[in-house]
């Protein structure tokens, strides 16, 4: 599967970008040229130079090092929140699709309520009050995202439930848990891979939007969104402060989108070439 993905030019490009972002996230302390937290007011707002390829911020911290460390936060938030959505959504989606009837009704109405809720505002409300932090952001993003996943999984379950092998197991008196996890879940796997990979780009975007509003990871953590929002104050005098993280976010999201597209093309050719929309 991976080979097929990489065979596409755009998939390859996406994979390269994603690899770079992941590398930054994993070994940030090794590759970052400076300590991203060390305040050095003597060197505040230096334009890009040999010593600081992306300049320094108002506290004299190296922007490139912060950008590299920022990849960590973006990845943590987007991967963990997406996983949480998927775990919740898959469980509830499986239950709803498999048991039908009252459970199905209840879960799907809950999904309707979640989807009818203005999600960004819900996130803002919760986080503004419990206090912004990386953990709060991961959990809220993850919880808000369950409904979309649940719907997809439920649809998938409905379409395979009637197939012979499931009917056979059921009639042989297979236990619900066994059927759910041994037979239905594996058949949802390709859907899950698509949902996950498509969602990562969205997760990075959501993280940066929330940090832009000051509701994400807290200082001194170098979140990309908060780097943009604090950099905007200096847009005229020190444009590198906001340009660097802006380009960073766009590239990272682009990478995940391209890779996600490629995965989908391979796993579900029906939907080819449309772009991300988990």
């Amino acid at each position: 599967m991976l080979r097929q993905v990489l065979a596409q030019k755009s998939g390859m490009l996406g994979a390269v970008i994603v690899a770079i972002v992941l590398l930054c996230a994993l070994v940030a302390p090794v590759i970052a040229p400076y300590d991203p937290y060390a305040i050095n007011m003597e060197e505040a707002l230096q334009p890009p130079s040999g010593a600081h390829p992306m300049g320094t911020d108002v506290f004299g911290r190296d922007v490139m090092s912060r950008l590299i460390f920022g990849a960590r936060i973006s990845m943590q938030v987007s991967v963990l929140s997406r996983l949480l959505s998927i775990v919740l959504g898959t469980l509830l989606g499986l239950v709803a699709g498999y048991f039908s009837g009252r459970w199905d009704n209840l879960i799907m109405r809950l999904a309707d309520i979640t989807l009818a809720y203005p999600a960004l505002l819900l996130l803002i409300a919760v986080i503004a009050a419990v206090g912004p932090s990386q953990g709060a952001l991961i959990i809220s993003l993850g919880v808000v995202g369950w409904a979309g996943v649940a719907r997809i999984i439920r649809a998938q379950v409905l379409s395979i439930k009637e197939r012979e092998f499931v009917m056979a197991v059921t009639s042989l008196g297979g236990r619900h848990g066994g059927i759910l996890f041994r037979h239905l879940l594996p058949n949802c796997l390709s859907q899950l891979i698509i949902v996950f990979s498509m969602g990562l780009g969205m997760g990075i975007m959501a993280e940066s939007s929330m940090s832009f509003l000051g509701l994400g990871a807290q200082p001194p953590l170098p979140s990309w969104g908060s780097m943009i929002s604090s950099g905007l104050d200096y847009l005229r005098g020190a444009p590198w402060l906001s340009l660097a993280p802006g380009i960073g976010i766009t590239l990272a999201v682009l990478g995940f989108n391209l890779l996600g597209d490629a995965f989908r093309d391979v796993l579900d050719p029906k939907l080819a070439n449309t772009g991300p929309r988990g």
């Binding site: 755009s10 780009g201 975007m205 940066s208 939007s209 832009f212 969104g225 943009i228 905007l232 847009l235 906001s242 802006g246 976010i249 766009t250 590239l251 999201v253 682009l254 989108n257 391209l258 597209d261 772009g275 991300p276």
Partner: peptide, 19 residues
């Protein structure tokens, strides 16, 4: 262009357009 467009945060684009 379109895939880059999809990947760009909306607040960032707004700022660039104003600028």
């Amino acid at each position: 262009t379109t895939i880059v467009g999809i990947s760009m945060p909306v607040f960032w684009l707004g700022v660039l357009l104003i600028y």
